[in-house]
Design a protein around this nucleic acid. Structure first.
Length: 755
DNA sequence: TGAGAGTTTTTTTTT
DNA sequence: AAAACTCTCA
């Protein structure tokens, strides 16, 4: 097989298939290329079936990339009909485990149509457990339990460890609540994120026949971003590969940034202990960044004590200096971000899609977003207020989840009285007590309202609701038997007629429940957004179904639960990307603008408890810088307000001082504004840049001054005032009020002059 | 029971 | 500053 695309070390790592392989792959060292080649190599040279190779990636997006790169390398994969030729199994730990459990979870006494609880669902469930134990949720915040439980599970610990780690009564409470929480999950036929990783382990150790089946199936295992695996993930890999030793893992301890999520750096450092005779390769040639960027990044990260020594190098020389810009406050900082975008696009002739703005916390995006919106810069936010976490979306999803799995009491709780059906807390509490007493699911208890001591009117409403859900379950083609029957009913028999397509089903359901109408009739500007969001949820269900006509509702639910924000990010739209440093891992951009470079914010310091992990913060900084190919900007604000309070003075981030002086260039926002009036060479350069900008502005109206309220002049209509705007770039339309008459004009062609 | 006013908390990063 | 939660009154 042709490995001429690879350098010597890369090729050696690909060809080494007789021993476990650990590849230290620095940022931008071409590890995806290596992994893709190795899969192709295993197929071509070792004769493995593609479907017998399991490749674990960090995001689903990376999985998609991996698949298409492998396909490009394997002509027979590419040419063949997709359905004919099985492709390698590529996905994240979570999605691979979910798929596995859909197959085999019945061995553990769960039903296959389990739903996945996100953090919000978990907290709700914990809250109801706390109430059941009559614990004050003020004194015992559900959030806290959620974190503790998740950490415990990630470390493969349970109630006992929780008990012994905490002192005294707290330990008992933790253990008790944990126990009830687990039981509640099981009753609801639900798994939380951590269970997705844990249950396969339980399955493998209790049912070795199942484990052996998977060992047989997966003849070779590859794991990317190995430095970010936690204990459960490590055990999963170990189960499958410890005997065969047919495994390659790729990682970079300098890019380990998920310690807080249970990622265990020892997994990479102790790899050779678990997998005997491991071969280690270090990829140190970087194909992404300029020499300046690499040197700066190394200077910073090499201060860390806990790391294996490696130093990236590049064949490129020199590069643009790193620019640090100090702003007065976060508003000015956002202005600077805008100016730099403007500069890069107009002067350096870059596309908007070449730029990324990074920050430590999601909350920082707002100030930047405000300015970019005002300035009509097309931007895309990755993460932040997440679509699938919006209230209205969760409401609709709760209906869908309940259709798939009526045992899901968290979803039931959420929607039983939404839109209002006159079933309040009192009634529900009675019903809950009743269902616990009789040990039946909350859903089936809906029939027994009167028996549970609920008022007749409410009891009837409950029955009606149950009838509604059941009717739609039938329309959907689900087994009619209900939740308490054992889950041998297979989902795949909806060829039979009388069943609605998923989209029709959802639309009708939303009409009948009047949920959409509820939001539509609120009449607030917010409710307009919410209605829109519901619409786009339906659209995305439609797309999903078009993509995979075989899929059903539970597939859709699974996908939405496991997709990350980066997965949903469409990098082909030509717009500036805004995201957190964590989300940026694995990505690259010509220009990186890192904001909020202040002590306390980055490195981030929590005001209350535990002190920060300085080394991890530094690695995060390293990850940020090494995303850049050519240019890095670092900005900070001297004063910043955090959550509404008065502006607080902040000191420059220590990381700024750790950069070698000769590689950086400092300026402040006031200097930046003053530049054109001075006479230095740099300033002249800058001024000519401004001139170009002005011309470009008029011609392209991409970066414009057409703010609402501005006064403009039109050749024909004369003087007017801008009253509204829609669209961006060439499609920017302005509403302009001229002398009593309002006109809508396409900015590009209107030839307006700002007054 | 339901709506609206008033109060408190939140923010670290994410599967 | 916004969302989530609690309280009060009809």
């Amino acid at each position: 097989m042709d490995l001429s695309d690879l350098n010597e070390i890369q090729a050696a790592a690909v060809k080494c298939i007789d021993a476990p392989v650990l590849i230290y792959a620095g940022a931008g060292s071409g590890k995806t290329r290596v992994l893709a080649h190795k899969i192709a190599f295993l197929v071509e040279e070792a004769g493995l079936e593609p479907s017998s190779i399991l490749s674990v990636t960090f995001t689903n997006k990376a999985a998609g990339e991996m698949k298409s790169r492998v396909a490009a390398l394997l002509p027979r994969l590419k040419g063949a009909k997709k359905s004919k030729m099985p492709s390698p199994v590529v996905g994240t730990f979570h999605s691979i485990c979910a798929r596995l459990l859909r197959h085999d979870i019945h061995h553990l006494g769960y039903q296959r149509d389990f739903v996945i609880y996100d953090k919000d669902d978990q907290v709700r469930l914990i809250k109801s457990v706390l109430e059941q134990h009559e614990l004050d949720t003020q004194l015992y915040p559900p959030q806290y339990f959620q974190t503790r439980f998740s950490n415990a599970k990630n470390a493969l610990e349970g109630g006992e460890e929780l008990r012994s780690r905490a002192k005294g009564k707290d330990g008992d409470i933790l253990a008790t609540v944990f126990d009830s929480y687990q039981k509640a999950l099981r009753r609801n036929n639900a798994l939380d994120f951590d269970d997705l990783l844990l249950l396969p382990l339980e399955l493998f150790s209790k049912h070795t026949d199942v484990r052996d089946r998977y060992r047989e199936k997966f003849k070779y295992i590859m794991v990317d971003e190995y430095q970010d695996t936690n204990k459960a993930q490590f055990e999963f890999v170990k189960h499958l590969a410890v005997e065969s030793c047919a495994i390659t893992v790729v990682g970079d301890d300098d890019q380990s940034i998920y310690g807080w999520r249970g990622a265990d750096i020892r997994n990479i450092l102790d790899f050779h202990k678990t997998f005997k005779g491991a071969e280690i390769f270090k990829l140190e040639q970087n194909y992404r960044s300029s020499d300046v960027i690499l040197k700066a990044a190394y200077e910073v990260v090499s201060r860390n004590q806990q790391r294996t020594e490696k130093k990236l190098w590049t064949a490129k020389e020199g590069g643009e200096l790193i620019r640090i810009i100090v702003a007065e406050d976060e508003r000015k900082e956002a202005e600077i971000v805008f100016q730099r975008i403007q500069h890069e696009v107009l002067v350096k002739k870059r596309r908007f899609g070449d730029l990324v703005v990074l920050y430590r916390t999601n909350a920082q995006s707002r100030a930047i977003e405000d300015v970019l919106r005002r300035r009509a810069i097309a931007y895309t936010i990755v993460g932040g207020p997440k679509f699938y976490e919006r209230k209205e979306i969760k409401d609709v999803m709760a209906y869908l989840k309940l259709l798939v799995n009526p045992s899901d009491s968290v979803s039931l709780d959420r929607i039983i009285n939404f839109p209002p059906r006159a079933i309040g807390d009192t009634s529900m509490n009675r019903l809950r007590a009743f269902s616990r007493d009789k040990d039946i699911s909350l859903f089936s208890a809906l029939d027994n309202g009167v028996e549970a001591g609920v008022q007749p009117k409410q009891a009837q409403a409950m029955q009606e609701f149950k009838g509604l859900i059941e009717r739609y379950r039938e329309l959907m083609g689900a087994a009619v038997s209900g939740p308490d029957a054992k889950g041998k009913s297979n989902s795949k028999k909806r060829e039979s007629n009388g069943h609605l397509g998923v989209v029709e089903l959802v639309t009708t359901l939303l009409e009948e429940t009047r949920l959409r109408a509820y939001y539509r009739n609120q009449g607030t500007s917010e409710s307009v957004d919410r209605t829109e969001n519901i619409k786009s949820l339906i659209d995305s269900i439609e797309y999903f179904m078009e993509d995979d006509p075989e899929a059903d509702l539970s597939h859709f639910l699974e996908e939405t639960a496991l997709l990350t924000d980066v997965d949903r990010w469409n990098d082909s739209t030509n717009s500036v990307t805004l995201m957190t440093l964590h989300s940026a891992k694995g990505l690259e951009f010509p220009v990186v603008i890192m904001t909020g470079m202040e002590e306390g914010l980055f490195p981030l310091m929590r005001t209350d408890d535990t002190d920060m992990d300085e080394e991890e913060e530094r690695r995060l900084f390293y990850v940020g810088i090494t995303r850049a190919e050519e240019q890095v900007y670092l900005t900070c604000a001297k004063n910043r307000r955090r959550w509404g309070g008065p502006p607080m003075q902040s000191a420059l981030s220590r990381f700024l001082r750790e950069l070698p002086e000769e590689l950086v260039e400092w300026s402040t926002d006031s200097e930046a504004e003053a530049l054109p009036s001075t006479v230095s060479a740099a300033a002249r350069k800058h001024r000519s840049a401004r001139t170009i900008q002005a011309q470009e502005l008029a011609a392209r109206a991409v970066l414009d001054d057409y703010v609402v309220g501005a006064f403009v002049e039109h050749k024909l209509f004369g003087k007017g005032q801008i009253t509204g705007r829609e669209g961006v770039g060439d499609r920017l339309k302005l509403s302009v009020q001229f002398n009593g008459e309002t006109k809508k004009l396409v900015a590009k062609y209107a030839g307006l002059t700002r007054l």
